[in-house]
Computed example of a mutant assay.
Amino acid sequence: MPEGDTVYLTGKRLHVALSGRSLVRGELRHPRLVEHDLAGRTVLDVASVGKHLFTRFDDGRSLHSHLRLDGSWHLYRPGMSWQRPAHQARAVLETAERTAVGFSLHDMELLPTGEEARLVGHLGPDLLDPAWDETHAAEALRRFTTRRSSELGLVLLEQRVMAGLGNLYKTEVCFLLGLSPWTLARDVPDPPAAIALARELLLRNADRPQQSTTGELARGRQTWVFERGGQRCRCCSTRIRTAEQGDGVYARIAYWCPRCQPGPSPRPVSPRNERRRPSPVGDERRQRW
């Protein structure tokens, strides 16, 4: 599922392309919305809330969409060929200058703009909210600390705590904090720092398609441990481990370095890895962030 920064960038690009412009074509091809025609409506705004997108119109309605695992919005010039099959299109919003096509959007709803909270009011503070301030941070901390008996990795993914993190950033936040993803929330030594780090990582990538937590954009150098199972840790050379965390449809692959991230884990750290040479991992991570 796309991370919050991907959804934020999608919303930003749609806003630039569509806001203040009238639609010459406004097709909704979702089974529940096919009777609606948005042609003639003016787009007032496109905004993201966590992993949700709202396209707001001058008639007081909003089009809600969620990308889920395979959804995406593409922008084209009128007449350009689409990069995905037409039968996957669920929304076509076209102005005189640009065409926005939403592909494989499973979650869509057309609702009064004043009722958007019905879909996102349960979420925690949006880590990429432009209005983020101490009040947002305090509310995220309050929600975080109520999950005392939950594992850190699961708390970071919980959109009701703070909205926007996916498995990539959950994994990397745990590494940069030097904590196992299975550390209980009550044992996290500095929860405000965890929240601040999560927001910082998202902000660093919010305005570009590339996602990096290491400060590097070269292929294969963008993350510390995410999707690097079995490879050597960049800091201590220990093999990065993987295991499922979460239950059922909420299960995600966790990546962690057993040396740099001590604490509970699904299986004991092998003696072989325990004997590996010490590493300046803590200092190096803190210098980068």
Rank of each mutant, 00 (worst) to 15 (best):
N167P: 07
S104E: 12
R118P: 11
A185W: 00
R208V: 09
D133H: 10
L110A: 04
P191R: 07
W224N: 05
V188W: 03
L203Q: 11
T99F: 08
G178C: 01
R219G: 12
E134C: 10
L141P: 07
L105F: 08
A100H: 08
D133L: 07
F144V: 01
L111Q: 07
Q222L: 11
V120A: 04
D187S: 09
P130M: 10
P112M: 08
D129N: 12
T135V: 15
R219S: 13
Q211E: 13
A185D: 02
T183P: 06
P192I: 06
A100L: 13
E200A: 15
D187G: 07
R186S: 01
D187Y: 05
G121A: 08
C174S: 11
D133N: 14
T146I: 12
F226L: 05
N167S: 09
Q231A: 15
A163P: 00
P209H: 04
F144H: 06
L177A: 07
L127S: 06
L127Y: 05
A206R: 08
D107R: 13
V188F: 00
W224S: 08
E139T: 03
L157I: 03
R147C: 14
S104R: 13
M162V: 13
L176M: 15
R160H: 11
A117V: 10
G153W: 00
G215N: 05
